[in-house]
C-alpha cells in the first residue's frame, strides 16, 4: 500500500475507520479533542518513549501509549497523529488536557493494556505504520 492515494484509504485488511468508530468499538473515554473525532485513522503506532513516537508516528496514526504527561500532545501534534490512546487507566493531567484542547488533539483513555488495545485495533483492520512503507 502506498501513501499517495487521495480517495478514501483502504488498507489491506479493510476500510480505514474514523477515530469515533474506534472509540465506540473499544469503549474509550474521550478527554479532549472531541471536535476532531471524525478524523480517519490510517495506521497505528505503539510506544511509550517519546523519541520513538516522534520518529515513527505518521499523519493519521493512532498512537497507543501509557504516558500521560503533556509532552505527548506536542509529539502527536508535530507528527499529525489522528489521536492518542492512553492505556491502563492512566489519567492525563490537567496540563495535558488543556494543551490537547488548544491543539485539537483527541485524547482517549482506557483501562485496557497496550497489548489488548493494539490487538483489538489490529483486529478492526488498523495496520502498523510500517506496512505503509512497503
Amino acid at each position: 500500500m502506498t501513501n499517495d492515494q487521495t480517495g478514501p484509504l483502504i488498507s489491506e485488511k479493510g476500510p480505514v475507520m474514523k477515530l469515533e468508530t474506534l472509540a465506540r468499538q473499544l469503549g474509550l473515554t474521550v478527554h479532549a479533542g472531541r471536535d476532531a473525532l471524525d478524523r480517519e485513522v490510517t495506521s497505528g503506532y505503539a510506544a511509550d518513549l517519546l523519541s520513538c513516537a516522534m520518529a515513527k508516528a505518521r499523519a493519521g496514526s493512532v498512537w497507543v501509549t501509557l504516558q500521560g504527561h503533556s509532552n505527548i500532545v506536542a509529539v502527536a501534534s508535530l507528527t499529525e497523529a489522528a489521536g492518542i490512546i492512553i492505556t491502563e487507566g492512566v489519567q492525563p493531567d490537567d496540563a495535558t488536557i488543556n494543551k490537547a484542547q488548544e491543539e485539537g488533539v483527541p485524547i482517549l483513555t482506557t483501562e485496557l493494556t497496550t497489548f489488548t488495545v493494539v490487538g483489538r485495533l489490529y483486529e478492526l483492520g488498523v495496520p502498523g505504520v510500517e506496512s505503509l512503507d512497503e
Binding site: D48, L50, S51, L66, G68, H69, Q91, D93
Partner: peptide, 16 residues
Amino acid sequence: GFSTAPDWIREMGFGA
C-alpha cells in the same frame, strides 16, 4: 505519574 526525572532517564524507560 508525577516525576522530576530528566528526559534521558525517561528514554531509558524509567522516571515515569
